[in-house]
């Protein structure tokens, strides 16, 4: 693929140099805090207190063992994965079946429904009534109740509706002529065609669940159900003074998340580039 910057000689070079300088500064901002984290994780507490930034001399790996012993991090990560995955999956499937007929006006009141979703975009999280709702349903301190909180996300619906509008209407007619049913049409023809939009929605929605810190404080009291965010906050409350142990814990959590992201990144990017065909 050719790109914009392949023009005449001089401007390419300066453009590239400026680009690299910009990237280099950003990398400093992103790597700096991380390196500090690694360095701290390898220190002993007195060493840290004496000189916070000095390069570690003790290579105190016992921080990792400490952090590992003191909290049930694998369980927390696993919980986070389950919550994120289940809720995102259910949400995206239901969202496609909401967005498609609204976008095509195949159901009555399509326009007012869409307006409702636009308004919902601006609604502040209704923490208090939601809490009572979950209590009333008997789903407090229950993973199902927790997942239920994340089955709604208006921005996703809007993104999907807009994207589906770009699909030609003839597609529907042709499919119907071929005798394809509604469910099968949406599932096996529309869904693959709107993959880029779905990928974006999946990423946005999953990030929100993965990063949630308030809901687990309010809804989950059993530590077996804690997602990683809550687990870390509790860990920080207990060992907050001990920066080296805390840093070790954070590092240990960073690795699996990075791996997870690297695995998923290919899906995301390939999903996104699939949209290039459409233009």
């Amino acid at each position: 693929m050719k790109n914009a910057k392949e023009s005449n000689g001089k401007s390419i070079k300066w453009g590239l140099v400026a680009s690299y300088i910009f990237l280099f500064l950003l990398v400093l901002a992103y790597l700096g805090p991380l390196l500090m984290l690694v360095n701290t994780a390898l220190k002993t507490m007195p060493e840290f207190m004496k000189n916070a930034t000095g390069i570690t001399t003790s290579f105190n790996f016992s921080n990792f063992a400490d952090a590992w012993e003191k909290a049930n991090f694998p369980q927390y990560i696993w919980n986070s994965i389950i919550y994120t995955f289940t809720a995102t999956f259910i949400y995206v499937i239901t969202a496609v079946f909401v967005a498609f007929p609204i976008s095509r006006k195949y159901v009555k009141f399509s326009t007012p429904l869409l307006t409702l979703f636009v308004i919902a975009l601006f609604l502040p999280p209704a923490l208090i009534p939601q809490f009572r709702l979950i209590l009333g349903l008997g789903l407090y301190n229950n993973p199902i109740g927790y997942i239920m909180l994340f089955l709604v996300n208006p921005i996703g619906i809007i993104i999907l509706v807009n994207y589906i509008k770009t699909l030609p209407l003839e597609l529907d007619e042709a499919a119907a002529l071929e005798g394809c049913g509604y469910l099968r049409f949406v599932w096996s023809i529309v869904l693959p065609l709107i993959r880029p939009a779905v990928a974006t929605v999946v990423v946005l929605h999953a990030i929100g669940i993965w990063n949630e810190i308030i809901a687990p404080t309010i809804y989950l009291t059993n530590k077996d159900y804690y997602p990683i965010t809550r687990g870390l906050i509790v860990f920080q409350g207990v060992y907050g003074s001990n920066w080296p142990t805390l840093a070790a814990a954070v590092l240990m959590l960073t690795f699996p998340m990075l791996v997870l992201f690297l695995v998923l990144q290919r899906q995301i990017v390939s999903g996104l580039t699939a949209g290039a065909v459409k233009g």
């Binding site: 949400y91 239901t94 969202a95 079946f97 909401v98 429904l113 409702l116 979703f117 919902a120 609604l123 502040p124 209704a126 208090i128 009534p129 939601q130 009572r132 709702l133 239920m148 909180l149 089955l151 709604v152 208006p154 619906i157």
Partner: peptide, 15 residues
């Protein structure tokens, strides 16, 4: 999808 939306989001917001 609509039901989730009404129960989890719109209802509580009205409340």
């Amino acid at each position: 999808g609509i039901a989730f939306y009404f129960i989890i989001s719109l209802g509580p917001s009205l409340a």
